[in-house]
């Protein structure tokens, strides 16, 4: 059955995640001189990724969406941390490769492309890592039709889908001849991904609440 308390915890977590994006927009102007979203986009990419990842880690520590059943030793934890970092890095590289295959410039603006890949990873992979842990089987399971086993899994599905669709839609203004500063690679895509991510965060609790009758989770 649907757990109301779990849904409330999820909503709180999502609000925090959304706040991370807001913070990345609001705080840097106080820290850096002449910071602007479009002008110093690379800085913003770094800040935003960092904020999102930090909040995700904080959520992992406080809300514990994925309670581990087994007691774990110190070495086990170190091992897990190491693998988490490795997974994140691999996902950044993979995203970079995919973006290039989709038509991003290969040589020029490698930095921009990579930071965009990091942003996408922090929207998608870092949440996966925090909610599911570095467990590839679980990831595969979650991203299939009947794979979700908790509200967290559902929220993961929704935010990941929204972020990637947002990034995809963000590519569409690039060819237009409007000569706007936000049409420069990768600004429109990263903005699209961010919008998608935030929209997914807002949408997920409502969607889950709406479909609460339909969603029944097997106990773990």
């Amino acid at each position: 059955m649907m757990d109301e308390a779990e849904l409330r915890r999820l909503s709180a977590g999502h609000i925090l995640c959304g706040l991370a994006v807001v913070v990345s927009l609001g705080v840097p102007p106080f820290l850096f001189e002449d910071f602007s979203l479009l002008g110093s986009h690379l800085t913003w990419l770094c800040v935003c990724s960092a904020c999102v990842i930090t909040v995700n880690v904080l959520l992992l520590l406080t809300l514990k969406p994925n309670p581990s059943t087994k007691r774990s030793s110190f070495t086990h934890k170190v091992n897990k941390l190491y693998r988490t970092c490795l997974y994140f890095f691999v996902s950044c590289l993979l995203f970079h490769g995919i973006i290039v295959l989709y038509g991003a410039p290969l040589v020029e603006s490698v930095g921009e492309t990579f930071l965009f890949a990091v942003l996408l990873s922090s929207f998608t992979t870092s949440r996966c890592l925090c909610i599911l842990g570095p467990n590839f089987h679980a990831w595969i399971r979650v991203f299939s039709k009947d794979g979700a086993m908790s509200v967290w899994d559902h929220s993961l599905q929704i935010t990941t889908f929204c972020s990637i669709v947002g990034a995809w839609l963000g590519a569409f203004p690039i060819p237009l001849d409007w000569d706007r500063p936000w049409q420069v690679w990768p600004i429109s895509c990263s903005l699209g991904a961010t919008f998608g991510y935030v929209a997914g965060l807002l949408l997920a609790p409502f969607w889950i609440y709406w479909n609460r009758k339909r969603l029944t989770y097997k106990s773990r």
Binding site: S68, L86, H137
Partner: peptide
């Protein structure tokens, strides 16, 4: 994949996770 018509092979560079699905 979403329709579960296909499952990806295991990618596990560091040995098996104790929590197997």
């Amino acid at each position: 994949h979403w329709d579960s018509k296909l499952m990806l092979p295991t990618f596990n560079p560091l040995g098996n996770e104790s929590l197997k699905p």
